[in-house]
């Protein structure tokens, strides 16, 4: 079974607040209402979208997000027309000198089973797949 739905977000921190409610509706539509995975997926998608706001600065001011159900997995695709993403190295926190930034992608990578970035012409594409945990009885 394959179902797809999408949303356009303003590429602003305020715009990112639509991600949680939209994903909540996606989970219901895809038959995963009350799944404990919702919060983890929201955080990962939020972090990827925050990277777009912070670094890509898309000229149309938009981030497009699509969700597709693939059996028990959720595939998410974020696209924007902004500057190419340049991956910077990140390191695990050092208790003696903890870094302040650079955790967004690390967080998303830990929450997704797959995550990929590529350029499609002038478009940035982030693709992530999440294993959705069934509702706990």
């Amino acid at each position: 079974m394959t179902e797809t739905t999408g949303i356009k977000l303003d590429a602003t921190y305020l715009g990112l607040r639509e991600i949680g409610p939209w994903l909540g509706r996606v989970f219901v539509d895809f038959g995963w209402a009350d799944s404990p995975s919702l919060g983890a997926v929201e955080l990962a998608v939020h972090e990827l979208a925050t990277n777009v706001v912070d670094h890509a600065d898309p000229p149309d001011g938009l981030i497009r997000v699509e969700a597709q159900r693939r059996q028990d997995d959720l595939a998410i695709r974020l696209t924007d027309a902004g500057r190419p993403f340049e991956q910077t190295d990140y390191a695990a926190p050092d208790e003696n000198n903890p870094q302040e930034r650079g955790y967004g992608l690390m967080i998303a990578e830990q929450l997704a089973t797959e995550i990929e970035y590529f350029r499609d012409g002038d478009i940035n594409v982030w693709s992530a797949v999440f294993a959705i945990e069934a509702v706990r009885s």
Binding site: G39, A40, L43, P93, E95, P98, Y103, I107, Q110
Partner: peptide, 16 residues
């Protein structure tokens, strides 16, 4: 909230 605690655990700042 487990959702709010998640970012500390994933980055290990719950130990810092």
């Amino acid at each position: 909230s487990a959702d709010a605690m998640r970012v500390f655990e994933l980055t290990r700042f719950d130990r810092v």
